[in-house]
Amino acid sequence: MRIIKVFTTLLITLSLSSFALAGDWSKIRVGTEGAYEPWNYTNAAGELVGAELDLARDLCARMNADCEFVQQDWDGIIPALVQGKYDVIMAGMSITEERMKTISFSSAYMTEPAKMSTVKGSPLTTLSTAKNLNLDDDSAATKGTIGTLNAALKGLRLGVTAATIHEDFANAYLDVDLKIYPTQDEMNLDLSAGRIDAALSDSGTIEAYMGTPSGANVTFFGPNIFGGLLGEGVGAGIRQGDADLKAMFDKAIAEAAADGTIGRISTQYFGKDLAP
């Protein structure tokens, strides 16, 4: 028994030391959802495409690494990173304090406000609010805007995607009948069909949907919402132990932002510059 014990201890020690040495990032596995147009989605050829896929390839080239993409459903995307299924999440994921309890993030590579949407002809479209709602700003004006939004939405069915900043926002600030969807695509369909009165999501995704025939009846209302628990923009999720990888991403992202690559990619997919 003693021998086994010694042997196991030795193995664990050995493996731990090999773990500490593991920092070979010549190959980086990037986890993404593939159902969040235009950030990341799946085309008719069955390939993962989108702004984040293009950006990831660019960042990997800057880091002299091979990128390999791994599809993972949104609801398991953080557990699978922690388990090691891939090394980085690039899936339109906002950097929030809540998530930073479990994983760490690179600096933001794109920022975009959250926005409410509804169908054309809904009474909500006539709602007038301030243009911006900054949750970092604790002023009376902020409280007023939230109050207006809340009064208009009271008791209505609001759709959000599960485990997002938008779900957190709705839970924290709104008194609504919250409907939680596994993917953005499903929520979009229900918004058009009228199963929900309004949806809260990032504005780029819903804009992409408005450009399609079935999303033609969808329109924005209310303020641009950002700050506070909505986080500090979209970043790459990285395991907390991989500080070296985070540093590599931070550097590559800063370069890509400086030379206009991020601006170019986001303009191509979103029609506007989302560089942080």
Partner: peptide, 13 residues
């Protein structure tokens, strides 16, 4: 549904 919601906050599937 409730279990999934809790998992999305605790990451403990």
């Amino acid at each position: 549904g409730i279990a999934r919601t809790i998992i999305s906050k605790t990451y403990a599937p």
